[in-house]
């Protein structure tokens, strides 16, 4: 049964790819409808606003449909589109990556952060914190923590050294932890905890 479903999905994906290669607008629309939401989630992490994320998505899907003939079926269509979305987002942010001044980051208790992260920080709040990071740290954090790239791969993608990637990641984590702690303090003060 599992194999049957897998075959069916693969067949469906092949149909979609074929339709896209033939520039069938209906099929292209179908692909867009299928992946737009999930790709938007990814684009949002790499950008500072939803408007910017939509611009990334627009550019990425145009690339998808114009380069679909280069799609090697060594991964799923979704994974291939995801790579394009991430690369497009990285390109769009490239100029801004190291423009921000370095900020001092204070140390904090890791256990506090962990507890608070486990507790009641919502997805949108966490996303907002990630978007507030300096662009370079934001990119490295996303690529390493959320996409699972190692520092060598990140260095190649962003044109930076491994060391820079590591320091950016460290910086991103510290900034995020700081934001989480501050948020908790604000919440506690607000509710008189």
């Amino acid at each position: 049964m599992k194999d049957f479903l897998s075959d069916l999905m693969q067949h469906k994906e092949e149909e979609l790819v074929k339709g896209c290669i033939q520039k069938n607008r209906q099929i292209q629309r179908e692909v867009y409808e299928k992946y737009a939401q999930s790709m938007m989630c990814i684009a949002r992490r790499y950008t500072k606003s939803d408007m910017e994320a939509e611009d990334v998505l627009q550019e990425a899907f145009v690339k998808v449909f114009t380069k679909i003939d280069t799609f090697k079926k060594d991964s799923t269509l979704g994974a291939w589109i995801k790579r394009i979305v991430i690369n497009t987002a990285l390109n769009s942010q490239r100029g801004k990556m190291y423009a921000q001044p370095m900020e001092d980051v204070t140390d904090f208790n890791y256990q506090d952060v962990r507890e608070r992260l486990m507790a009641d920080i919502a997805y949108e709040q966490l996303l907002a914190y990630i978007r507030e990071l300096p662009s370079g740290s934001q990119m490295v954090f996303n690529l390493h923590v959320l996409e699972g790239f190692n520092h060598k791969e990140i260095g190649e993608k962003l044109g930076i050294s491994e060391g820079t990637s590591k320091s950016q990641l460290s910086r991103a984590k510290r900034l995020l932890q700081e934001k989480i702690i501050k948020n908790d303090e604000i919440t506690a003060n607000h509710y008189g905890r």
Partner: peptide, 19 residues
């Protein structure tokens, strides 16, 4: 573990609205 926590939290993405 911290990265894992972030990963878990971020995997619970809410459906964003698209224009």
């Amino acid at each position: 573990e911290l990265a894992e926590l972030f990963r878990q939290k971020m995997s619970r993405a809410e459906s964003p609205s698209l224009s």
